[in-house]
Write a protein that binds this DNA or RNA. Structure first.
Length: 537
RNA sequence: GGCUCAGUAGCUCAGUGGUAGAGCAGGGGACUCAUAAGCCCUUUGUCGCGUGUUCAAAUCACGCCUGAGCCA
């Protein structure tokens, strides 16, 4: 086992590789927005950052879905992959890599990895009997099935009886090592509630799991025996490794691992925790690779308090949502209103309320009123700062905002980051009303007006910067109105043009900088008609 | 069935021994730089139910109810 190749500052992070059974749902968007936000934060810090997303395209379920659509599996996948790419573009996701498990280079990595595991004696041929749910791509215990062998998660599909030869991975061998991993790295699985789940699962004893299927063509053949097709999860997890290979490099394990391994953080939905927190580390142990830094299992989304699902007719289309409200609104709602790690709900009125209150009223209007005053009272340039004591209402909050927010982003506490940033905007509104620069201006106290406006403009800047990983377009609009030529959506160099070490501090706004004409950065969302289906029953 | 977590104002949540808080929504007021916005004030709670421990419990213990999750 080699030492970690990447430096402590390097940050590599993944979303799951999404299963292309259908077009992306809002849960995938949620994970991806969170990963994008934390990646953007690390780029601001100037850390070498690699943000990985992609798609998982093999398995029986894909094969059958494609068949039902009268398409080849590859044609089906290509089409769905397109809809993922489109959505990420609409949501302003800055991924560095998009890993597809059907890529030929992925096969090379999978074979190399398989060989290492096999050389460890961790793969053997065995017999697998049981009911198989194609929906889950998993064998089920009979007691876990409903009547007539229907899977509870896929009640419209009957689990299929299988009695077949499968290759197995010797997971049982790694029980002790896994338990040591969890004990030595208490933060390996987050949040803590998820960690407890995994601990209790592992403590019950680990069984080897099957890593191949017969009667399935859509996947990679098992190298030692092409009659078998590699189990979709075994190949999907390795998509993270494939993603690390530079596009111009040969797809070898060495090339994959040289710069970005180990992955700093895997962000996943809680449904696939076991694969990432148990199977995946064991596979890596077998292959002799260093462990990833963290696995974070976030919560699920509901809509109007109910589970989402096509069969219930209760879905939330992320594409429609972005088209209606824009990327920043969607990003802000999910990252601010839901504590990352817990389950959360989407409700339209709550969505509109939150955005109007925070982005339009507290922040947007603050920017607007302040710039208007700077235009009117200070010749549309950043006025002289004057001297601020440490007891200054805004400076007091502003001086450590950068550090607090940094901590929040590191912990994936996006909601907390937003609340901290917003607190400065709210304090600024209060400050303006207390100081009433419009009155002081009429009284001819120009110096006081300038000091007040500088403090507020600087606060606004700091808030915009702190929120930029979450609402990059709004932050850019604010920054540009403040006279900066900085674009938080620029794909390169943001860590140099707007480094955290400078812009994350109080006082980075240059005196005399020319301001632009104020223009609303986030128009208030008008509610059409309160008519209709209220909470009556 | 076993284990875990949650149940606090209309909504989202904080509060882990000293008789309840925040944000949003709702109501009222003063102001005017502003996206009718911001500011100030403000209504509402058997803190899921019951029993117990304690001078004192939302907070501890036990039981129950409801919801969510894990148990390959």
């Amino acid at each position: 086992m080699t030492a970690a190749a990447n430096s402590p500052q390097t940050f590599s992070v993944t979303t799951p590789l999404y299963y292309v059974n259908g077009v992306p749902h809002v849960g995938s968007a949620y994970t991806t927005m969170a990963v994008d936000a934390v990646s953007r934060y690390h780029r601001l810090q100037g850390h070498p950052t690699l943000m990985i997303t992609g798609t998982d395209e093999h398995g029986q379920k894909i094969e059958r879905t494609a068949e039902a659509r009268e398409l080849s599996p590859q044609a089906h996948c290509d089409e769905i992959v397109g809809s993922f790419r489109d959505l990420w573009k609409q949501l302003n996701i800055q991924h560095d890599r998009f890993s597809r498990t059907t890529a030929p280079r992925h096969q090379a990595i999978v074979e190399a990895f398989y060989q290492r595991v096999e050389e460890q004696g961790d793969i053997y041929l065995g017999q697998q009997k049981g009911f198989y749910c194609v929906g889950c791509e998993e064998f089920k215990e009979e007691r876990d099935l409903l009547e007539n062998q229907h899977c509870p998660l896929h009640p419209n599909q009957k689990a299929e009886w299988r009695d077949e030869e499968n290759y197995f991975f010797r997971l049982s061998k790694y029980q002790t090592q896994l338990e040591a991993l969890y004990a030595e790295n208490p933060d390996f699985i987050q949040p803590a509630s998820r960690r407890n789940e995994v601990l209790s699962f592992v403590s019950q004893g680990l069984q080897d799991f099957s890593i191949s299927r017969v009667n399935l063509d859509w996947g990679f053949p098992v190298p030692a025996n092409p009659k078998h097709t590699l189990y979709v999860w075994f190949d999907a997890l390795l998509g993270y490794v494939t993603a690390l290979v530079d596009p111009e490099d040969e797809p070898t394990l060495d090339n994959a691992l040289k710069q970005w391994w180990p992955i700093s953080l895997h962000v996943i939905g809680k449904d696939i925790l076991r694969f990432h927190a148990v199977y995946w580390p064991a596979m890596l142990m077998s292959a002799g690779l260093p462990m990833p830094g963290r696995v974070f299992g976030h919560g699920f989304l509901t809509k109007d308090g109910r589970k989402m699902g096509k069969s219930q007719g209760n879905t939330l289309d992320p594409v429609a949502l972005v088209e209606e409200f824009g990327a920043d609104a969607v990003r802000y709602y999910f990252l601010k209103e839901i504590e990352f790690g817990r389950d959360g709900d989407f409700a339209r009125t709550r969505f509109i309320n939150a955005l109007n209150a925070d982005l339009a009223n507290d922040l947007g209007n603050l920017v607007n009123r302040t710039l208007n005053m700077a235009k009117r009272y200070c010749g549309q340039v950043v006025p002289p700062a004057g001297e601020f004591g440490d007891d200054h209402a805004l400076k007091q909050l502003g001086v450590d905002l950068g550090d607090r927010v940094a901590k929040s982003y590191t912990n994936l506490a996006f909601s907390e980051a937003c609340t901290s940033a917003l607190a400065l905007a709210q304090a600024s509104n209060r400050f303006l009303d207390q100081q009433a620069p419009w009155t002081k201006y009429k009284e001819g106290d120009q110096k006081a007006v300038e000091e007040i406006l500088y403090a507020v403009l600087e606060s606004v800047r700091l808030v915009a910067y702190a929120l930029s990983p979450i609402v990059p377009t709004i932050s850019t609009a604010i920054y540009q109105q403040l006279g900066f030529e900085i674009d938080f959506n620029a794909t390169e160099g943001i860590g140099q043009t707007a480094p955290y070490s400078l812009h994350g501090q109080w006082g980075a706004l240059p005196v005399g900088q020319a301001l632009l004409k104020p223009k609303p950065v986030f128009p208030k969302i008008e509610v059409p008609e309160p008519e209709g289906t209220g909470g009556k029953d």
